[in-house]
């Protein structure tokens, strides 16, 4: 009995993902029509390379949104992680990377304490922490008199290198991470609890779950993923300035929403988010190809998110 039930859920989820993938293919087709021959292996490679930082950043966002929260500090954390990594690079690459990732974990933990222990609304907590992170980073950058630090070669290779000519190196990080997250959300106790908390916090408590532990771990994980995304991004653009990832904040939420994760929590998947991130990246590529000015690009970008979200809500009939 319940087998049928579960497979029915899967079917609906998969169907919506099929729709999203179809959209992705349609966008690629559009590019091919605009400029025949443009969609080739190196284009795909490029798309994957640019989608990777967004995809990883949106991974953290997905985890938080599933619990019914939102993390508005992901971009600030990514920026800070990359900047601190770069500024620590002269003392050794390992130390630099660890320092960068640590930034993410620490900020994530503070977010987690605020949300889980002090019951602060996630929107507010992460917004405020975003301000704290950016403010602190400004102060730090003035103290570290050095000019904008360079990105170590390893990170540069991670962010923009390719293997066999076409396979981006970042894919070797992103793909295993994606598999881990997709399986983890579906098949581990921790994953179950994220959905449970997003659905009904009080019910989850009544079932004997200490919600703060789950949330704390989850926000820390989100912080860590944001830091990873920041490092990859700094490798992709080969720089780490004070506004590195700022532009990715809104897309990180948009990718999650387009991917079908409910902003109210309790349902969704990372596979959807991946497709969402790819759609946004391809969309950007289409607009660039059309030589659309940045301002118009922004307007179209916004309009398309509205249309996608509306279509999605209509199709799945959430009430």
């Amino acid at each position: 009995m319940s087998v049928r039930v579960v497979s029915a859920v899967r079917l609906v989820q998969q169907r919506s993902i099929v729709v999203l993938i179809a959209l992705l293919v349609a966008l690629a087709g559009l590019i091919e029509i605009i400029r025949p021959g443009a969609v080739n292996a190196s284009w795909v490679s490029n798309i994957l390379e640019f989608a990777a930082p967004l995809g990883i950043l949106a991974a953290g966002q997905t985890l938080v949104v599933i619990t019914g929260g939102i993390d508005l500090s992901v971009a600030n954390v990514a920026t800070a992680a990359a900047y601190i990594m770069a500024s620590q690079a002269p003392y050794g690459v390992t130390r630099a990377i660890v320092a960068g990732l640590l930034v993410g974990v620490v900020v994530g933990l503070v977010n987690g304490v605020g949300v889980a222990v002090f019951r602060v609304q996630p929107l507010i907590m992460t917004l405020a922490m975003g301000l704290v992170v950016t403010g602190s980073l400004n102060v730090y950058s003035q103290a570290a008199i050095r000019s904008v630090p360079g990105v170590p070669a390893v990170i540069h290779a991670l962010g923009s290198g390719t293997v066999l000519g076409y396979v981006p190196v970042s894919l070797f990080l992103w793909a295993p991470l994606a598999v881990l997250l997709i399986l983890g959300l579906r098949g581990t106790g921790f994953g179950r609890l994220l959905y449970a908390l997003g659905d009904n916090l009080e019910a989850t408590r009544l079932a004997g779950v200490r919600a703060w532990q789950v949330l704390l771990a989850n926000y820390a994980a989100c912080g860590l993923l944001s830091a990873v995304a920041g490092l990859v991004l700094s490798g992709t653009v080969n720089a780490a300035d004070l506004s590195l990832a700022t532009v990715l904040l809104l897309p990180s939420v948009a990718a999650v929403v387009i991917g079908g994760t409910s902003i109210f929590g309790g349902s969704g998947s990372y596979s959807g988010t991946i497709v969402g991130a790819l759609i946004l990246t391809v969309l950007n590529s289409v607009l660039t190809l059309l030589d659309v000015p940045d301002a118009v690009k922004q307007v179209l970008y916004g309009a398309i998110i509205v249309i996608l979200a509306a279509a999605y809500t209509r199709v799945l009939g959430h009430d």
Partner: peptide, 29 residues
Amino acid sequence: IIVVTRVPDIVITLATSFIWAGLALLVLA
């Protein structure tokens, strides 16, 4: 848009924030 599409406000205004900002840039570069 929020009322008609029933999409959560946070998503819609996030998206329209792109639109208004883009329009502002179009009006004045």
